[in-house]
Design a binder for these strands. Structure first.
Length: 570
RNA sequence: UGCCCGAUGGUGUAAUUGGCAACACGUCUGACUCUGGAUCAGAAGAGUUCAGGUUCGACCCCUGAUCGGGCAACCA
């Protein structure tokens, strides 16, 4: 089913979520003879986001856990909004997350004929009728949540007339919006969805798969449950807003089938992430208005965006696992997502030397023109990853924020008279510095002690700080794109009078073009992930060209000093 | 002024057919460290929205209230 079943030990110990509880009860009662078959049913009208990832992990993961299957089904009943581009991106994203659907992808549009035949059946049973009224009138007659609706004057048409009209609707004899087919249920139902819901509307539109063969298209409510039925779905998992649709989901099935097998709709709470918007509409708006650079902008909560940002499938699966599933509304701290990717990359990402904001440091007593190779471990978390050498010399770059002219006592880095270790190399002492007329430091002058060479040196003094650095003459210039949250408000879409866009973070993207990196980074491939020592995790962007690497900051390392400094500042 | 759903530390999720609340993230200590990362050790933090009821015993069952969310596309 999927390549990523949990460790048996762990999954056995873990408490069941409410869906698993239902499944186990079903298995006990023999309801589906132990069969578990789920489906992930996206509408191909946009890119998948982290909220969908939750649903994907839930549907595929649950099926896998019980040795079942999971279908990928495109819910493509609205030709006006759906496009092949989205179908392709959705398949790519699901695969990338590490899941494999049963057989070929399914499409609700594959069932158009059967759905049509069943609609005819409903008409014959007197359970559906053609309504000639305009949309506004139908809407008015529907009533309100607190007021019952009234019946359409067309509600009691003869079966023959309904059949004739419906056939002609199908044949394209009527213009868009002129008629609909409605289920004949109960206009006084306290559940709005049961007040003679629309089953079919006339749409003279080009469908991405069926072209122009259909002039009428089924509505979600009429298509979904039956699609589940056709595919043998046992547990149809969807989000909470469909809870009130469930009676309708069951009603259609009740009228149409009499088998013992019946799919069951189960609702769970969708994912909300702090400092993030999750609706497709809002995301589309960000793309269209060019606030971000496309669906895969690394600031987007889309799967494509997270991928480009440097997130791994495993980290997203771990995240989905950690947040759990329940029915209550929830807001997950984005910090948890960040924790998940740090956890993964800490174990797997090679450590490299790169200076994001370079400040020149000259070792005045180091021989001019001399370059030596120093050895560095590739990943201390993974000893088998070995080590490499990088050049060291008289002139190097250090991080600008690692030097202070007048540092406080707790600043364990460089300042006049202070000593610090250059990771993998020597201990240096700051003798002086040069600044321009504005007081901006241009150069730090140090002396080094040749006896303190990392590992081999006879003197290994304890120093409070260790800095990362890059040798100047061999450094590779890299572009680095630093990302911060797109929104400054915890719940940007949660304000009644203000649009989410009012909370945009003006500094969500900072491009730094003169970063200095160790030589090997000239040859990275898009998607390569690294830990820039002491800074954070970075991922080579597709914009990378030979010798001209471009990196996206995936997430920063935890920074105890920054936290301390921030606290003192407050 | 209707119907449906929900309510457990800061956040999220548990507590398996009622036995005085667990785990993860976060927070705070301390140890270790040639990444102020990681790791390790420890701590604080909820008495389960409220009020009744059933029971020897209630997060769990019942009643009522409060609060929060959803529902009036020819969207999904």
């Amino acid at each position: 089913m999927t390549n990523h079943t949990e460790e048996p030990l762990e999954s056995e110990k873990k408490a069941l979520n409410f869906i698993e509880t239902i499944i186990e009860e079903d298995n006990l009662s023999g309801k589906h003879s132990g069969r578990v078959h789920t489906r992930f049913p996206p509408e191909p009208n946009g890119y998948l986001h982290i909220g969908h990832a939750k649903s994907i992990c839930l549907n595929f993961g649950t099926a896998a856990k019980y040795g079942g299957k999971c279908n990928l089904r495109f819910d493509d009943t609205n030709p006006e909004k759906e496009e092949t581009e989205y179908v392709d991106s959705i398949m790519e994203d699901v695969r990338w997350l590490g899941f494999q659907w049963d057989k070929e992808p399914y499409y609700a549009s594959d069932y158009f004929q059967q759905l049509y035949d069943w609609a005819v059946l409903l008409i014959q049973k007197g359970l559906a009728y053609v309504d000639d009224q305009p949309q506004e009138e139908i809407s008015r007659q529907r009533g309100t949540p607190t007021r019952p609706g009234i019946e359409s004057p067309y509600r009691s048409r003869s079966v023959e007339e309904n059949l004739d009209l419906f056939t002609r609707m199908k044949n394209g004899e009527f213009p868009n919006g002129s008629r609909v087919l409605r289920a004949r249920i109960d206009m006084t139902s306290p559940n709005m969805h049961m007040r003679d819901p629309v089953m079919y509307r006339i749409l003279h539109a080009e469908h991405h798969r069926t072209g122009d063969t259909w002039k009428i298209y089924p509505m979600y409510d009429y298509a979904h449950g039956q699609s589940d039925y056709f595919e043998g779905i046992t547990h149809s998992l969807c989000t909470l807003e469909f809870e009130v649709h469930r009676p309708l989901y069951d009603w259609f099935l009740d009228q149409l089938i009499d088998t013992a097998y019946r799919p069951r709709q189960i609702e769970f709470a969708r994912l909300n992430l702090s400092y993030t918007v999750m609706s497709k509409r809002k995301l589309l708006e960000l793309v269209r208005s060019k606030i971000v650079n496309g669906w895969d902008d690394p600031r987007m909560p889309t799967i494509a965006g997270l991928r480009r940002r440097g997130y791994t499938p495993a980290s997203i699966r771990a995240f989905a696992d950690r947040i759990g599933v329940a029915k209550r509304d929830n807001v997950i701290d984005v910090g948890l997502l960040e924790f998940s990717i740090r956890e993964d990359l800490n174990k797997t990402a090679p450590r490299v030397m790169a200076v994001v904001d370079p400040l020149k440091l000259v070792i005045t007593n180091y021989p001019e023109g001399q370059i030596e190779e120093v050895e560095l471990v590739n990943n201390p978390e993974e000893p088998e990853s070995g080590s490499r050498t990088i050049p060291f010399g008289r002139e190097i770059y250090i991080e600008r924020e690692d030097f202070m002219v007048d540092p406080p006592a707790k600043f364990f880095r460089l300042g006049p008279g202070r000593e610090v270790r250059l990771k993998g190399a020597y201990v240096v002492r700051c003798e002086s510095f040069e600044a321009d007329k504005n007081g901006v430091v241009q150069k730090v002058l140090c002396t080094y002690d040749p006896e303190t060479k990392s590992g081999s040196g006879p003197k290994q003094p304890k120093v409070k700080g260790t800095l990362h650095w890059v040798e100047a003459s061999t450094a590779v210039t890299a572009e680095v794109r630093l990302y911060d949250r797109l929104f400054m408000d915890e719940d940007p879409a949660g304000h009644k009078d203000q649009d989410a866009l009012e909370f945009l973070n003006p500094d969500s993207l900072k491009v730094v073009s003169n970063c200095m990196a160790e030589p090997m980074l000239a040859h990275v491939q898009a998607g390569d992930k690294f830990q820039f020592q002491r800074i954070g995790y970075f991922c080579a962007d597709p914009d990378t060209r030979p010798g001209k690497p471009v990196f996206n900051k995936t997430v920063g390392l935890k920074d105890a000093w920054a936290k301390m400094a921030q606290k003192d500042g407050q």
